[in-house]
Design a protein around this nucleic acid. Structure first.
Length: 267
DNA sequence: CTGGATTCCTGCTTGC
DNA sequence: TGCAAGCAGGAATCCA
């Protein structure tokens, strides 16, 4: 599922289209559209000025017209040469560029969506700080956990607290911080908040370096798999042995999400 | 305000 | 072998 590292990898892969002009947009499904402040066809003839990322959102700017994309859990967004035939199913949107490429938005489960908007503010405003932003400090994280009874796992999945973590990197970050996922957020000490802060940044940095995690659906901007699954410590490994201590990893459900952890390494 | 439950959707996995 | 049921999950929404 595309979390921050996957979306960042896609952003980088697609960035060579910046400066190209969108010649035509095909919108094959209307129900993926979450906002329509302008007609999608108005993008034709406009230059793609930038591709940005905020949390798990991609923001493409076309001179005051924005196209925001969220990939949900099975979404893909990748390029093909313009003349290449499309054999795949569930391709809901195609952006034809004048540089000889087309960008395909594909999403089987349709948890994702797109926004045609003149103002990205309302969509992005609700997001907390980027993990790599200076605003994401140890103090911010620690203070945010005060008086919060929810499990720390659920807490760091909350996009209004930190933008970009999904189920995989939440579990991996808590393992790296040696913190049990079910602990109430408010139970973290300052040193533990510091560990978690460092772990989140470390895990995401490594995952971006590995071009993301491909368990099943995820592909990058060129429809290629990521490599971080080879470095995964706990996610999807319940019953297998911990790479650090050899104890059997466990799986529980927290906040309706599969949660993987080491009962020995994490306290 | 907080937090829990529910909903959306399809494809892979599981069990008979 | 074939089919139905179970399950996964990001974010919005509803409700207590």
């Amino acid at each position: 599922m595309p979390e921050l590292p996957e979306v960042e990898t896609i952003r980088r892969g697609l960035s060579f289209n910046i400066g190209a002009v969108l010649s035509e947009i095909e919108l094959n499904r209307q129900d993926i559209v979450r906002a329509r402040d302008y007609e999608p066809a108005e993008l034709a003839g406009r230059c793609l000025e930038d591709i940005d990322r905020r949390g798990k959102y991609l923001i493409m700017s076309f001179g005051g017209h924005f196209l925001i994309v969220h990939l949900g859990m099975s979404g893909r967004f990748y390029v093909l040469p313009e003349q290449e035939p499309i054999s795949e199913t569930h391709v809901h949107m195609i952006l034809h560029m004048d540089n000889g490429y087309k960008m395909l938005y594909k999403d089987a489960r349709r948890f994702g969506g797109v926004w045609f908007t003149a103002d990205p503010g309302p969509v992005l405003r609700k997001l907390g700080p980027e993990p790599f932003d200076p605003a994401f400090t140890i103090e911010y994280l620690f203070n945010a956990t005060r008086n919060r009874k929810v499990a720390i796992k659920t807490f760091i999945l909350n996009q209004s607290i930190i933008a970009g973590l999904g189920n995989i990197y939440a579990d991996e970050s808590l393992f790296a911080a040696r913190i049990t996922p079910s602990r109430p957020a408010s139970s973290l000490s300052m040193p533990e908040a510091q560990m978690l802060h460092r772990a989140i940044i470390k895990v995401l940095t490594q995952a971006i370096k590995s071009c993301g995690t491909t368990f099943r659906d995820y592909r990058d901007g060129f429809n290629q798999e990521g490599q971080f699954q080879n470095l995964i410590q706990v996610y999807g490994r319940s019953g297998e042995s911990c790479k650090q201590c050899s104890a059997a990893l466990e799986r529980v459900v927290i906040g309706g999400r599969s949660t993987h952890f080491c009962p020995k390494c994490q306290k």
